[in-house]
Design a binder for these strands. Structure first.
Length: 220
DNA sequence: CCGTGATCATAT
DNA sequence: ATATGATCACGG
């Protein structure tokens, strides 16, 4: 499948997928539907990438580099509220770049195609449906808060301090690795090399919850 | 081996 | 019920 030619093209493709079951989309693209997601955690995201013509490369760039658009599936309950936080991008603990402007976080969040997916555990995976997509960019206020979160966290890391997921209004930093044994080199408070679990930025569930509410809730 | 796609599992 | 920290499959 060719990558979408422009944003309108991507939007059209998303519109065609909205309301369809995952089993239908999977069949179209030769994906086998797993029994559950325990051992296939990224299956829904990978399926959507394929269905939309994204390049399945693991890169710190948006999924559609030429469009500058990141694709994110967002698992929702029957009321349309997110069930999970959302991975944004990894942080290189060995060479911390503190500049927001050039950060993968800013690049990825500059424009996002959010796609809600039914995710209540009682719905068999193949029967879960896609919702309408939301093509979104952060408002000036959102952008500012994201930037502050990022700079705060990255500065602390750069100074060698430990940062837990408690920090940050909307962005947080959490472990992300193969398992607890997977370690990376980092720099400690004394400036000495240290071993640390790999970390990545996530968007809090409260953030995506507000996002969906603002954009999909009927207001008077 | 590592980063991206994420969700799982447990403590609170 | 929710958040944090842990974990799994895959592509490159």
């Amino acid at each position: 499948m060719e990558p979408p030619r422009d944003e309108a093209d991507l939007s059209r493709r998303l519109g065609r997928l909205a309301g369809h079951r995952l089993s239908t989309i999977a069949a179209t693209h030769g994906f086998e539907v797993p029994v559950d997601l325990r051992r296939s955690k990224g299956w829904v995201g990978t399926l959507l990438e394929r269905a939309l013509g994204a390049t399945a490369a693991s890169r710190a760039e948006p999924d559609f580099p030429q469009l500058g658009i990141e694709l994110k599936t967002i698992p929702v309950d029957p009321r349309g509220r997110p069930l999970q936080s959302c991975f944004v991008s990894s942080l290189d603990l060995g060479a911390v770049d503190r500049r927001w402007e050039t950060s993968p976080v800013r690049k990825k969040l500059a424009r996002v195609a959010w796609v809600a997916v039914e995710a209540s555990p009682h719905i068999p995976l193949g029967e879960r449906r896609l919702g309408a997509a939301l093509l979104w960019s952060p408002s000036p206020r959102e952008h500012e808060t994201l930037r502050c979160d990022y700079e705060d966290i990255v500065e602390l890391i750069g100074e060698g301090f430990k940062v837990t997921a408690h920090r940050g209004t909307w962005l947080q930093l959490r472990p992300k690795g193969r398992n607890a044994a997977a370690l990376r080199w980092s720099i400690d408070e004394e400036g000495a090399p240290a071993r640390t679990a790999p970390r990545a930025f996530y968007l809090r569930r409260s953030f995506t919850a507000a996002l969906l509410e603002e954009n999909f809730t009927l207001r008077t």
